[in-house]
């Protein structure tokens, strides 16, 4: 909420910082889910900056420290080729249960269609009740075909392969594969994901493996990124549900440890509620602006 911003402003207006002010600053970062370890590092960084620039505005210095972690210079575009380049590019969307994978696939398809790319969706979640129906609804909403199985519990890798195969034979430009939600501590399900990635790779090695992180997620988000990244090297994060009160600060820890950048943010349940990640805007919102 705005409390964070107001408390920060109040601190910074006071000029030189007392221990209480430092503590309060630390708490504002913790309350944005930045995490204790990353917060310790940021506070150490801020102290060094204040020391080097005693007349500097601590607020500006903290903002700069945060921006350095987020690194606005990173390329956050989708590596899915160019319209009319004649190749099939594939992307796989992964993550734990209920974070917004299927919705994100629908929204990404909308973006790609707007760029006049031909898209095929693969419903490789054969487990969750009505998962394929949900993706089909998204497909029809944004006007792209969906390859699915009508058998509950069918082999998701087979569906993924079928989708890739159809995308290739129909000379589609982009294949987006939706996968079932899985908790990263379930080895069997993680192996299944590995198989989906391998099978799609036979047709078109995925140039994007996007991990969907829910902005409300706390410290477990870092474990999610670590473990999913072991199954398939992640190329980007989609940070969903940023339209709520959660700040999504865990992505700072993810980027700091794993170097995986946020590429998009989810801002609602509608087809157009997806936006490119804006580093400065994100940092300002962490600081409550």
């Amino acid at each position: 909420g705005t409390g964070l911003g107001q408390s920060l402003l109040a601190i910074f207006r006071r000029g030189s910082l007392s221990q209480d002010d430092w503590d309060e600053l630390e708490e504002t970062l913790l309350m944005a889910d930045v995490g204790a370890a990353a917060t310790d590092e940021l506070m150490a960084d801020l102290k060094a900056r204040v020391k080097a620039d005693p007349d500097g505005d601590p607020r500006t210095l903290l903002r700069a420290a945060l921006l350095d972690v987020v690194d606005p210079s990173l390329d956050r575009g989708l590596a899915l080729g160019e319209a009319g380049d004649g190749a099939l590019h594939s992307a796989i969307v992964v993550g734990v249960n209920g974070v917004g994978k299927t919705t994100t696939v629908g929204k990404l398809a909308r973006v790609l269609v707007a760029e006049e790319r031909s898209v095929v969706l693969g419903a490789a979640d054969t487990f969750r009740a009505a998962a394929a129906d949900q993706l089909e609804t998204w497909g029809s909403r944004v006007g792209v075909p969906v390859v699915r199985s009508h058998v509950d519990g069918a082999d998701p890798a087979s569906v993924a392969f079928e989708a890739a195969d159809r995308a290739r034979s129909e000379q589609a430009e982009v294949l987006l594969v939706d996968t079932a939600g899985r908790l990263q501590n379930k080895q069997g399900l993680m192996d299944e994901l590995g198989k989906i990635v391998r099978v799609v790779s036979k047709v078109s090695p995925p140039s994007e493996v996007l991990l969907v992180l829910d902005a409300t997620t706390g410290q477990n988000g870092l474990t999610q990124a670590r473990v999913f990244g072991q199954v398939a090297p992640l190329t980007g994060i989609v940070l969903t549900k940023l339209d709520g009160t959660a700040k999504g600060g865990i992505v700072l820890a993810v980027q700091r440890e794993l170097g995986v950048p946020v590429k998009f943010v989810g801002l609602g349940e509608g087809a157009d509620d997806l936006a490119p990640f804006d580093a400065a805007g994100f940092v300002d919102s962490l600081l409550g602006e």
Partner: peptide, 15 residues
Amino acid sequence: IDAMIGQDAVATATA
């Protein structure tokens, strides 16, 4: 409520 939720638990539960 999802056991993975972080600091937002307070604002959400209160709402």
